[in-house]
Amino acid sequence: MVTTPNESSKILDTIGALQSSLTKTEKRIAEQILITPELIAQSSLAEIAKSLNVGEATFIRFCRTLGFKGFSDFKLDFAIELATQSQQSSDLLDTTITAKDSPKEIASKLQSVINNVVGETINLLDFDALSNVVKELRKAKRIYLFGVGSSGVVADGAKNKLMRIGFQVDAETNNHFMYMQASLMRKGDVVIGISHSGTSPETTKALEIAKQAGAVTVAITHNLRSPITKVSDYVLNNGNRQGQLQGDSVGTQITQLFVLDLIYALLVQAEKEKAKQSKQKTVAVIEQQQNK
């Protein structure tokens, strides 16, 4: 079963993606919205400002940070979002594992986590940016993927898939190698930096070097205003709605892989015959070597 993403959940998803980069006052507003969303939706601007101990203008600026013209637009869309979530809440599983859970129940909770983070990712993605990234990759002379830790594992997996359909691609997970490769980039190359937090100093620095060298830079990250976004021509946001299940590793890697698989699918769609021929060649050569 695959859950269809809910466009009306976009406000809470966006608040979550912005939270780490907000000011102290904005964080307080964001936390209150996430804790008591119904109260916010039912209150007037004056009541909200009073309960949060902020000025009305401050809350209006927060609404604009989320992409709304003002409070009225925010409140209307937020009320619709909460009403839709209320209708669906009975279908959502508690994703906290308990001592009494059977293996099947834990599997169902994990499925719920996966469905939630994928749906959140689709809500957060800028599909115009995604289309432009695919265009840049199709005409790229070379493609590099940078990432450290678990993001490096994801980068290596994406390298394998893109190579199989004919792209000149490589991945680096060591910061020294990333810096060296980035310095050798030039116009016509594309570099994709993967950092869930968006604060990885190694990946951010590598993208900055690559951008200065003339390459097109792409960030895959959860945080909308993180350092890596400032050195990227295109930003693709992944979800993070995971609750307390399995820390943050399950949802993080799945959403990164989802974004990269979406890129892969769009590349295949754009040049299906070329991708098919390249994949046949790469699969055949591996089989030949294994049969020797």
Rank of each mutant, 00 (worst) to 15 (best):
Q288M: 14
D128I: 12
S197V: 06
H222Y: 06
S150R: 12
T4R: 09
R164D: 08
S51Q: 15
T3E: 11
A265N: 06
N132Q: 15
G67C: 09
L125I: 10
K187H: 14
A182Q: 00
L45T: 06
K27W: 07
L224W: 04
L260F: 05
V191G: 02
G119N: 10
I263W: 03
V2E: 12
T98H: 12
Q280C: 08
F177G: 02
L52G: 03
A206P: 00
G214Y: 09
F62P: 00
D73V: 08
E47A: 13
N237I: 05
N240H: 10
G188D: 07
F167D: 03
L130Y: 05
K75H: 08
L22H: 04
D126R: 08
G55R: 14
A30R: 02
L18E: 12
L93V: 03
Q269H: 12
Y144A: 07
F177W: 11
Q87F: 06
I33K: 04
Q32L: 03
T14S: 13
S108F: 09
L130E: 01
L92N: 11
Y179D: 12
E26L: 00
K27M: 13
I35V: 15
L257H: 07
L124E: 03
R225T: 10
N116P: 02
N53W: 07
S90W: 05
A270S: 15
K135H: 06
E136N: 13
S9C: 06
F68T: 00
K279H: 14
R241E: 13
T255P: 02
F127C: 03
S278G: 09
R164S: 11
A210S: 09
I35Q: 15
G239Y: 09
G166A: 08
S9Q: 09
E7F: 13
N6E: 13
V259H: 02
C63Y: 00
R61A: 14
L266W: 04
V259T: 07
K230N: 09
A107F: 14
D13E: 07
D126T: 07
N115H: 11
L130V: 08
I60P: 00
V231M: 08
L45Y: 05
I228F: 03
K159E: 08
D128T: 14
I254K: 02
I143H: 01
N132W: 05
N116Q: 15
L82E: 09
E56F: 04
I143Q: 01
T36K: 15
T96Y: 11
R142C: 05
A41E: 11
T23M: 06
S249K: 00
E172W: 03
V154N: 01
Q290G: 04
L266Q: 11
S72G: 04
T252V: 07
L262Q: 08
D233T: 02
V133L: 01
V250N: 01
F68E: 01
I194N: 06
L162W: 15
